[in-house]
Each structure stands twice: as structure tokens, then as C-alpha cells.
Design a protein around this nucleic acid. Structure first.
Lengths: 248, 248
DNA sequence: AATTTTATCGCACAAACACGCATAAAAACG
DNA sequence: CGTTTTTATGCGTGTTTGTGCGATAAAATT
């Protein structure tokens, strides 16, 4: 392999994952650590990346990437980390959209090998950064509000899927009313998603607890895991703890 | 073997494999290293390839890396503006992916009312910013390299669509060889896209002109519009002007 | 503080390269 | 036709570049 090709490869990895480990590159490219270090140094000289102990970072990662505008980002990161624990190698996972799911995806382990179905283009793009994850985007009408695909076609396709786990964000959850929503189409969509997965995890920031909206998606019993940013023994969760529900 | 024949051979290798090693050429062509080096140098002087230590790379091999800063952005904006002229109210448009298409989408007029099918999640998200555009994302396997959906499911869905216009980016276009590509799946995809649209516009920055890759998508006659950033009377376009093709 | 991981430096060696020169075939010319 | 000029190629020699190895230093981890 030519040096230039190696450089291109490294830059592709960097642009894809925003970071790269020296040790990974050694394996992937089958050259010595010295060579990788020299490559990285040369790319630094060309001002194409930042070098750090153990690997390198994308230049654009720090400057142009601004997700600080995400509402309650810290909570969502905490939820994302917890959700990652549910994912094992070889699983088939179905996800919805939303910023919480996105934070979850960003925190998946690099080497994970799994199959992900998703109705969110943004989630698909983020998932594509993992080499060993197969990503299937479910197509259909694209919703301008919630940035996911919806409609009859989506529901038809969902009915053909059998997933081990479904991860979804939520608009509202209530200990008695269960999962609820405001829009008919989204409601239908969530029902279909639930129906095709063995287990369901709901990702939910604490401020959406104890709220019930107009349309019912499912009772609380249909949910396998509730993941919030709160401690397990937090008072707000007591009424959920009583139910048949794993709380993370 | 004549020098010209050798040059042609080298260019063919480059366009086919994106790269070539000096040592391989020595063997294949049965000449000394010096001769190969001189050949490569001459091809560099003609601006036909990129020479590196150990061999040479295709000029158009910018393909999938360089994500952070859009390559040749100004050209792509110019192309996008031209392409917008083809879009009228009420049209059904099918688009591929890529940075050129994205620049096109960003330049659509605000009030436009139309239906867009797309295989690119990023394009879908961008299109969703227009209130009167209905966006349908075609789902399927998601390609990590080209960031579009592909595979059997996509092709099946495409076969059910009838679009007025198909807009696609391109890897390579050649006056005699037509549209060509390197990957089988993308090749199949483009064929399917062409098949379901009444007219096709190819968006192509000038440096991808006159290049032929391994797999053929369609002859030049199947294309309705060729859109580049060049002036209409630019010399590089003369060989395309001869064909049945609208040049913008 | 001890241990492991990652970096840095100098060196060695092979592969790739540039340059001048020699040769020979092809082309141009009287 | 013979001579000169041009072009194309290969060889020898010295140089540069790319890569890996070992020893040592620095950083992270325990």
C-alpha cells in the first residue's frame, strides 16, 4: 500500500469517527507503530488533524461541531451511556429518532458488531461511522417535525422485521397511562415499532415523567426498560419501580 | 510496444483501479523502471494522474475522503444554481446523494412546491426545511461510503416510482463510454434511478469529465442534461456538445 | 511508586528515484 | 543513399524516501 493511500485511509477514518487510535491503525493497515506515527505527524504538518496521546482527532471536531445547543444534553448523554449497556454483539436493534437516541449512538463501543434498523436519517448517518454495524434505514414519507420517516410504508416494512430490542425516545410517560403521544401518525408508528421487537427500552429525560398526552401508545407493562438520567433510587421513579419494569 | 500504447495502458489501469505501482508496470509492460518513470512523469505533465513514491494515483480519487471541507465547493455551488433552473412547481423529482446534490438542494427557491424522492438521508433532512416540498426517503441498506441507501429493496421501491426528473451526481463521465462507476451496487442503483425518470440530469464537476471507470451505467445518449460549472462554450465540453445532450 | 502503554530518537537497510551517459532505432535532410 | 538529428530506451551511480528495530523517555494507569 502506498503512503498516500494510507494517508487517505487515515483521513477517512478521522472524518468518519472524529478520532482514531494509533493501535487500531496499526492493525487495520498492517504496518508498524512508527509508520503510523510518522503518517500522523505528516498529516499534522499538513494541518489536517490534531495528534494526541494514543491517536489523533479531527480538526473540525472541536470547532465546527456544535451540539451544545441540544436541550438538556448532559442528561441525554447520561441516558445514552446507560442504554449502551443493553446492547450486545450480534443483536438486531430497532431505533427511533431524536436527540437522546443520537447521544446513545455516539456512545456505542467502536468494535460493536450488530444490525440496526432505524427510521431516523440522522441516526443512520451516525451509525454508519461504525465499521461493524449494518445499518438499514426504513424509508417512507419524511416528517419535517420529528425528522423521522413515517406513514403506511414504514409500518408495512416494520411488520416484516423481528428485532431483539427497540429503543425509542418519548414524548411522555406516566405510571398509569403508560406511553402516550400527541400525533396520530407518530402514535401508529410507535405501536408498530413496539410490535416488532422482543423487548423495548424507553429513553426518557426526567422532566417527561408523569405526563400523559392524548393518544395512548401502550401500557407501562409493555415496556421492558425505562432509562432516565436519575439515580436508581431517586424518588421520582418510585411509582415506576412498583411496576414490572427494569429501571436503569 | 509504442510509447503511446504504454501511456494508454497506464491510464486504463489507473482509471480501473485508481492506482498503479511502478514495479507492476515494469513487469506488465516489460520495460525498465526508468521508462515507466518517464512515462508517469509525462502523464503528470499532461495533468492526467498523480504521481507518488512507488507509483501513481488517479486524479479523481478524491472520492470518499475529504468530508470535513467540501471539495471544490465553489464549483458545486455553481452547478447547484444551474440545476435549480430545471425544477418547476409540481414536479416529481428523484435525487441521489453527494455534496453536489446537497448544494443544489440548498439553493432551491423557498416557495417551491414539489415532491422529492431521495436515497440520501442528508438530502432528505435538507429538503425537509422547505415547507411545500413533500419528501420521501427511500429506505434500505445504508452505505457507509457513499451515504445513500442501496440494495435490492431500494431498487424494488424505485421501480414503483415515476419521476419527471432524476438528478444524480457522478463519479465519471466520458463522451464515448458514457456514465461509469467503480462499485457494482452503486452501478445497479444508478441504472434503476435512470429507469424510473422521464429525464435525467447529471451534475458533474469538470475534473470528472473524460474519465471512464470499470462499470458502465448508461451511454451518454441516455442523459438529458449535463450540468458542470464551466461556461457553455468551454473547450472541454466540445465533445459532449456533439452528442444529443443539453449542456448547462 | 510501580507498571504498562505510547512516543521519540538514531540508525540500518532496502526500495524507489534522479541524473548523466551510452546506445540504437527512427526520422529528417541534403 | 549516407549523414545528421531526434527520440526512445537502458544502465550505472549516487541520492532520497519509506520502513522497521532497539533503546530510551514520557505519559497514562494501577
Amino acid at each position: 500500500m502506498l503512503k498516500k493511500e494510507r494517508h487517505d485511509f487515515i483521513m477517512r477514518q478521522i472524518n468518519l469517527h472524529n478520532r482514531v487510535l494509533t493501535s487500531d491503525l496499526v492493525q487495520l493497515l498492517n504496518v508498524s507503530e512508527d509508520t503510523i506515527r510518522r503518517d500522523l505527524q505528516e498529516l499534522v504538518d499538513e494541518n489536517l488533524l490534531y495528534k494526541v496521546h494514543g491517536g489523533a482527532l479531527s480538526k473540525s471536531y472541536h470547532s465546527s461541531f456544535d451540539d451544545s445547543t441540544v436541550y438538556a444534553r448532559d442528561s441525554k448523554i447520561a441516558i445514552g451511556k446507560k442504554a449502551v449497556q443493553l446492547i450486545k454483539d450480534g443483536m438486531v436493534v430497532l431505533t427511533g429518532g431524536g436527540t437522546t437516541i443520537l447521544e446513545f449512538v455516539k456512545r456505542l463501543p467502536q468494535g460493536l458488531s450488530a444490525t440496526f434498523f432505524t427510521i431516523s436519517p440522522l441516526v443512520a448517518v451516525e451509525l454508519a461511522k461504525y465499521n461493524n454495524i449494518e445499518v438499514i434505514l426504513i424509508g417512507g414519507l419524511f416528517s419535517k417535525n420529528s425528522q423521522v420517516t413515517y406513514g403506511g410504508q414504514v409500518i408495512t416494512q416494520l411488520s416484516e422485521i423481528k428485532a431483539d430490542l427497540c429503543l425509542m425516545g418519548t414524548s411522555a410517560i406516566h405510571p398509569d397511562e403508560g406511553l402516550t403521544d400527541t400525533y396520530w401518525e407518530i402514535n401508529q408508528l410507535k405501536k408498530a415499532m413496539l410490535a416488532c421487537a422482543k423487548k423495548t427500552a424507553v429513553l426518557c429525560i426526567s422532566e417527561k415523567l408523569d405526563i400523559a398526552l392524548r393518544l395512548r401508545v401502550c401500557p407501562i407493562e409493555s415496556i421492558s426498560y425505562l432509562i432516565t438520567e436519575l439515580d436508581l433510587d431517586h424518588e421520582s421513579l418510585s411509582r415506576y419501580r412498583a411496576k414490572e419494569l427494569n429501571i436503569l
